[in-house]
Design a protein around this nucleic acid. Structure first.
Lengths: 138, 138
DNA sequence: TGCATATGGTTGCATAGCTAACTATTGGAG
DNA sequence: CTCCAATAGTTAGCTATGCAACCATATGCA
């Protein structure tokens, strides 16, 4: 119905991809947003909550809640940043660190599968086009 | 952080676009999902609820609720399809029909603005790439 | 020093989406 | 004709997201 609409196609694709990734992270008991946030934390432990919000391109309230969820699962810790009483530094727990490798492997597998289905070039082109649009709209 | 991830970029773009369209539909008191569904109904009055779910690529429960919202605003009617007691045909009310032209105009404006910002070719390429991925994953 | 402003985080409230499970109706196979 | 399977729609319950408004802490300027 809205074949040439960027919004329509983008949101529809986002929902499709959400399902793909949900399958991959299901064994970890994580949803895609949770898993991606955790991967970011594992890659850059100690960054401030605000910095993760920026990096994931989600609002601060959404970040608060996503981190609440990860904390409830015992996967992260919030520590006061020390020099500024407002800030929270985010660290993975040992349990999360134990998942790091397999979480990354699962992610790589999804990427590989998508590249196989779509073709490596189409995949890369699409990502690059989307990133271009994102930054043009920023 | 996930520069080359299709999921990450797609969901982030989806949120950005949502905001763009929200501005455009705000004068009508409609959110983007509501407005797009209503536009579909205005273009094809009388289709079944299930058919709108398919067309919009959303689940049936989401369709039920989106239509509940439009009905609460007095913009659509559900009528029994006649030959099958399970089905509901969806029609726009006079109030909705009165919005048809300006709703479409507002939508065209957003499209024009995006094409101007991004360039017509980038816009078309991006949509086409995304549609390609959508159908490859279907 | 003290108040105004800015910033990081949280809370409240709303929307949109999903899956699973339910109801109601239809249609087909014995 | 009856019962079982399939289909349309709804309901329940969950997650993710945003904005507005709030609290607490910093910061800067007068």
């Amino acid at each position: 119905m809205f074949d040439h609409c960027l919004y329509f196609n983008t949101t529809a694709l986002a929902r499709q991809l959400e399902k793909e990734w949900a399958k991959a992270f299901e064994p970890f008991g994580l949803t895609p947003p949770q898993a991606f946030l955790l991967r970011a934390i594992l890659d850059q432990p100690g960054l401030l909550q605000r910095e993760f919000a920026e990096g994931m391109v989600i609002s601060r309230p959404t970040t608060t809640r996503a981190l609440d969820g990860l904390m409830a699962k015992g996967l992260i810790e919030r520590r006061s940043s020390g020099h500024d009483g407002r800030e929270q530094s985010i660290f993975p727990t040992a349990a999360a660190i134990a998942m790091h490798v397999s979480l990354n492997e699962a992610s790589v597998q999804v990427g590989k599968r998508l590249k196989k289905v779509l073709g490596v070039d189409v995949f890369a082109d699409t990502v690059s086009k989307i990133r271009g649009v994102r930054s043009a709209l920023k």
